[in-house]
Measured scan of single mutants.
Amino acid sequence: MAAAAAAGAGPEMVRGQVFDVGPRYTNLSYIGEGAYGMVCSAYDNVNKVRVAIKKISPFEHQTYCQRTLREIKILLRFRHENIIGINDIIRAPTIEQMKDVYIVQDLMETDLYKLLKTQHLSNDHICYFLYQILRGLKYIHSANVLHRDLKPSNLLLNTTCDLKICDFGLARVADPDHDHTGFLTEYVATRWYRAPEIMLNSKGYTKSIDIWSVGCILAEMLSNRPIFPGKHYLDQLNHILGILGSPSQEDLNCIINLKARNYLLSLPHKNKVPWNRLFPNADSKALDLLDKMLTFNPHKRIEVEQALAHPYLEQYYDPSDEPIAEAPFKFDMELDDLPKEKLKELIFEETARFQPGYRS
């Protein structure tokens, strides 16, 4: 834990890192770190609560700039109880001085990944967590956004079992017609939660990839272990087919990539493993919904509104309290091709509203 900075004593240090967030945020305490930044909790002297502050230093890398800009653009436009918001952003007053960006968010005690390492969940908890994931996802999908990296560590939890989806750095506007060349190379989302079509096709992607990830998360809540822990690309596919069985001819016809289709045709026939054999203690309604989410063919996979209306979630289902976005989200430009200098300018502009004396 960093010592509390005395008023006016300059930035606090946390594990050798400068955290320049005073005077409003003090009493910093280390939480963890990701690929390009550290997260601390801090005391907000204005709202009198502890908050989470993520320090991001992305400006050396085009990919990190892209992810940072995506996350900020999306989260500043989203407003939903099951999606983490941005409360404040701290950065230098000029673009030349801006080396880091500090993002202030609600402090959540833990995440689903940490929880599943230590606790076996009751059916009631599984049901409530799944409902909140789908409630947040309904809003995301209504904005025409794909999260693309749903996994237990991106689901934040607090002691009252509130759940918030975080990390929109890989999110995209849904565009089933656009052929994202190089899709697989830039697709760094965790393999275990990846839909089979991501490994088999490169053309376009749809909201059904997020539903697949939610199915993987439900299976993990039922058993405290990942359902498809593939060691590499082909191993991942083999794990999936080992449980779902061989795809039907109709399902194979959806695979545009001939090499991928021929690979699947070359494999020995596998039978589907019954879900109640894998999860003998699970609620039968939970397994019915799991089956509809972990469907090989993305066109037959359940959609988020149908999933919310499934009998497993009937005690929570309330369409009048499951809000959607006001308007579909649009990125003005494809960020993939922009140089990091341009992305830095866009991050600077996007964060201006939090600067003292800002006038829109």
Rank of each mutant, 00 (worst) to 15 (best):
K117C: 13
K151S: 05
Y193K: 09
N201H: 08
T63Y: 10
I140S: 09
L116I: 03
L294C: 14
Q315P: 08
K203W: 11
N154V: 03
L116A: 02
D111F: 03
G22P: 00
H141R: 10
A260P: 04
V46G: 12
I95L: 12
L75F: 08
Y233L: 09
T68S: 15
R70V: 02
D291Q: 12
L69K: 01
L150S: 12
G32F: 03
T351M: 06
R67F: 09
M38G: 13
D149W: 08
P339T: 13
K342P: 10
E305Y: 05
P323G: 07
F78M: 04
P58R: 15
C216H: 06
S208K: 09
A282N: 02
M13D: 03
Y131W: 01
C127T: 05
R24W: 01
I211V: 09
I72S: 12
H147L: 14
W192Y: 07
A282F: 08
C161W: 00
I53G: 09
H180Q: 14
I217T: 03
R261N: 01
V104H: 06
A5E: 11
L338V: 06
R50P: 14
G16V: 15
A219V: 12
D336P: 07
K99Q: 13
L241I: 10
Q315V: 02
D337Y: 14
I256F: 14
R194W: 04
P339M: 10
S57T: 13
I211P: 05
Q249H: 14
K270T: 05
D321K: 00
N154M: 08
G8H: 10
S122H: 02
K117R: 06
N82S: 10
C216A: 11
P196M: 02
A7F: 03
M221T: 06
Y263D: 00
T94F: 13
D124N: 14
H61C: 04
Y128S: 10
T185Q: 07
R135E: 06
I198A: 01
F129P: 02
K138L: 09
K164R: 12
A6F: 00
W192E: 08
N123P: 02
A171L: 10
S208E: 03
Q132L: 15
L134W: 03
N271K: 11
D337S: 05
I302L: 14
P196Y: 04
Y102D: 12
K138E: 09
Y317R: 00
A189N: 12
T94R: 09
Q97H: 15
G22D: 05
R172K: 11
A307Y: 00
E303L: 00
K54P: 01
P356E: 11
Y193P: 03
K340D: 05
I211S: 13
P152D: 03
Y187S: 11
L134D: 08
I103V: 00
L146E: 10
D106E: 15
V173C: 03
M108H: 00
H125T: 02
E186I: 02
F19A: 14
A7R: 10
R79D: 02
S320L: 08
W275F: 03
M221Q: 05
P311A: 06
G8L: 09
I84F: 14
S248Q: 02
S360Q: 13
I74C: 12
F19T: 06
Y139E: 08
L237N: 03
P93R: 06
Y263W: 04
T68Q: 15
L308W: 07
A143T: 07
H239N: 15
G32M: 00
H269Q: 11
N297M: 03
A286F: 09
E326W: 05
R15K: 15
I302H: 05
D332A: 11
D210F: 07
G37T: 15
F228K: 01
E96K: 11
D167Y: 14
Q119K: 10
I103H: 06
T206H: 13
F348I: 14
I133Q: 03
Y102I: 11
F228M: 05
P247A: 00
V49E: 15
C65H: 13
R359C: 04
D210A: 12
L241T: 07
T94N: 14
T206Y: 12
V214E: 15
V14I: 10
L137P: 10
L278D: 05
F19D: 03
L156S: 12
V104Y: 04
G10A: 12
E60V: 14
R261I: 08
L289M: 13
A286G: 05
A307R: 04
V214L: 11
A352D: 11
Y317H: 01
G32E: 12
G230T: 00
L237F: 05
D235W: 05
D106N: 13
V51R: 12
L218E: 09
E349H: 03
K272D: 01
V18G: 15
L335A: 08
E349V: 13
R301V: 02
F183E: 10
Y64H: 15
S213K: 01
I126P: 04
L155Q: 15
T181C: 07
I302P: 11
N224E: 11
R191S: 10
R77H: 02
E60L: 14
V18E: 10
Q355L: 15
R24V: 02
P311Y: 04
K259T: 07
S320F: 08
N45R: 10
R148S: 07
Y113W: 02
H180A: 05
N262T: 01
P280V: 03
S246E: 07
K55N: 15
A189S: 14
L150D: 06
S246D: 01
N271M: 11
E96L: 11
I133S: 10
I133C: 03
R194A: 07
K272W: 02
L121F: 04
K151V: 09
S142P: 00
